[in-house]
Structures are given as structure tokens and as C-alpha cells.
């Protein structure tokens, strides 16, 4: 009886969220995977769809649009994650050197976080207008004024590297947050360790190379996972910048057109499954690593 009294109130307290998450996250995830394995390619008709196994999952690779959207997602992810990590680290590095009015700068760099991807996208759509020469507006216009006409390019409409341009607003938005993470990481390195390294004849660069950077590894990993999962499921930014165009197609926008324009729920569910799986590839190893670490300590 006393044992029950110990765990029951706690369980009751968390049970609403357990139930809600079980239904609305894992229940619907399961429902989505089930739908993806049927041939329900018609949204309106009241057919449940027959089980077809992994046919949809393999079939989609023969679609040119799918290959393109996967390629776009990879380019976007590499540029966005890499860019935000490097820029965030660099900003934190500068901050850490103890500049004046640090709090002010920190706030300025963090502000973009408060803006939604939609709002960011609307502004950057204008900044990244693809017109060049006399008709140029936005950044191309700025390059024109500065006499840097050779820098004008098609931005997100560039057939090969358009998605790299699409990553710029995302980097702008998230690098401040990454800076905050790194700054906390820098501050977590005890001054004594740096002192010790200096006493042992380490230069300032060496202190960073051998002492600070290794200690930032957990922070870097967290940042990588946070950015990675945002990047793989990016939708709002792409839609706000370019709408539903093949030139900036990513799996999430493909899913949207599959469900709402082609009225093909099974295909939409297949794409959704791939998005979940790709995010899981990022997150699950982290969770395992985290759990192991927890056990050790």
C-alpha cells in the first residue's frame, strides 16, 4: 500500500501527457506508416486501401521530382547546418574575447530567433529577388550600387545551387541561437584549465585547439542535432520564399502537393515517413549516446 502511494500520484500527474503523446504523436505516427503501406491513392473515395508493403517506399525513387527534392534537402542541410555552426561559433568566439556592450550584441544576434520562418521568408524573398542588371531589386540592387555587379546571381532560382541561397535566411535566423549555445559552452570551460595550458607553454591558439574545443564537443553535438532536425523538415521557409515550385522543392513541399493537389494520401504518407526516418537518423544516436552517458555518471 505504501509503495503504491509512492508512485501513484506521480503517475497520475504525468498520465494526461502520456496519453496525449501516445495518441497524437505515436498513434498518428503509426497510422501514417500504415497509410504509407497501402494503395490509397485517392483522397475522396471511401476506400481503406489495400496493404502493399513497401511498394510506395521503393516506387517513389523512380520519380524524378523525389530525387530532386532529396538532393535539395541535402544541399540545404549541409549549407545551413555548416553555416550556422561556423557563424554561431565565430560570434561566440568574438563575444568570449570580452567585447564592450556584450549584452547588447548578444541581444541583437538573438533577435532573429524571435521571428518566425514565415516572416523571415517573406523578407528574404524580396532581398533574394533574382532580377539582375537594371531591373535588380533587393541584394542584387545593393551589389549594383556598390559596383559589385559580378556578385549578382539568381539566388534561390539558380538551378544548381539555389538551395544554398535558401539556406542563407535560415543561417541568419539560427546562428544567434547557436552563438548562445557556444557562449555557454565557452563559459563552462574553467579558467584554471586555460591557465594550466598557458603555464605549460601553450599559445593562445593552442589553448583553443587543445583545451577549449574538445570541451565544446557536447555543445556542438546538441547544436548539430537541433539544426539537423529543423533542416530536414523545413517547409515554412521554403513556402514563404518561393511557394510550391520545383526549383526549390524539398520533401515537405512535395508531401504538401502530393496530399492537397494530387489528392494522393498514400504518397504523402510515404514522404512523411521518409522525413520522420531521416530526422530519426539524427536524433536516435544522440538519445542513445545521452542515455549511456547518463548511466555512466
Amino acid at each position: 500500500m505504501t509503495r503504491v502511494r509512492r508512485w501513484l500520484p506521480g503517475l497520475l500527474l504525468v498520465s494526461p501527457s502520456i496519453i496525449l503523446i501516445a495518441i497524437f504523436v505515436y498513434g498518428l505516427l503509426g497510422w501514417n506508416f500504415k497509410l504509407a503501406m497501402t494503395d490509397k491513392h485517392d483522397e475522396i473515395a471511401e476506400i481503406p486501401g489495400n496493404f502493399v508493403g513497401l511498394e510506395n517506399f521503393t516506387g517513389i525513387w523512380s520519380e524524378e521530382r523525389w530525387g530532386l527534392s532529396v538532393r535539395h534537402a541535402i544541399v540545404f542541410t549541409v549549407v545551413f547546418v555548416g553555416g550556422a555552426l561556423v557563424l554561431g561559433w565565430f560570434l561566440a568566439f568574438l563575444m568570449e574575447k570580452g567585447i564592450r556592450a556584450e549584452a547588447g550584441f548578444r541581444a541583437v544576434y538573438l533577435f532573429p530567433m524571435a521571428v518566425s520562418f514565415i516572416a523571415t521568408g517573406v523578407v528574404w524573398r524580396w532581398l533574394m529577388n533574382s532580377a539582375t542588371g537594371e531591373q535588380a531589386v533587393g541584394l542584387n540592387r545593393l551589389f549594383h550600387y556598390l559596383g559589385l555587379d559580378f556578385l549578382q546571381w539568381q539566388w534561390f532560382r539558380d538551378p544548381d545551387w539555389g538551395m544554398a541561397a535558401m539556406a542563407i535566411p535560415a543561417i541568419w535566423q539560427m546562428s544567434g541561437y547557436i552563438m548562445a549555445l557556444f557562449l555557454a559552452g565557452f563559459r563552462g570551460v574553467p579558467e584554471e584549465l586555460r591557465e594550466a595550458a598557458r603555464v605549460d607553454g601553450c599559445g593562445e591558439w593552442g589553448v583553443y585547439r587543445h583545451v577549449v574545443l574538445p570541451m565544446l564537443r557536447p555543445v556542438t553535438l546538441s547544436a548539430l542535432i537541433i539544426l539537423g532536425h529543423i533542416s530536414l523538415k523545413v517547409f515554412d521557409l521554403v513556402v514563404a520564399v518561393s511557394g510550391k515550385q520545383i526549383i526549390t522543392d524539398v520533401p515537405a513541399t512535395f508531401m504538401w502537393t502530393a496530399v492537397y493537389d494530387s489528392h494522393d494520401p498514400a504518397k504523402g504518407a510515404t514522404i512523411a515517413s521518409y522525413i520522420v526516418l531521416s530526422v530519426a537518423v539524427f536524433v536516435v544516436p544522440y538519445l542513445i549516446w545521452d542515455a549511456r552517458k547518463g548511466k555512466r555518471s
Binding site: 521530382r65 530532386l68 515550385q245 520545383i246 526549383i247 502537393t257 493537389d261 494530387s262 489528392h263 494522393d264
Partner: peptide, 16 residues
């Protein structure tokens, strides 16, 4: 709608 979307996709790929 399905047909129109397929044509739209083809045009988008052709544009590139």
C-alpha cells in the same frame, strides 16, 4: 487535379 499536378511537375522539371 492529379493530371494537372503531373503536368505542373513536368513543367517545373522542364524549366530546369
Amino acid at each position: 487535379d492529379q493530371w494537372r499536378q503531373a503536368i505542373t511537375d513536368a513543367v517545373g522539371l522542364f524549366q530546369q
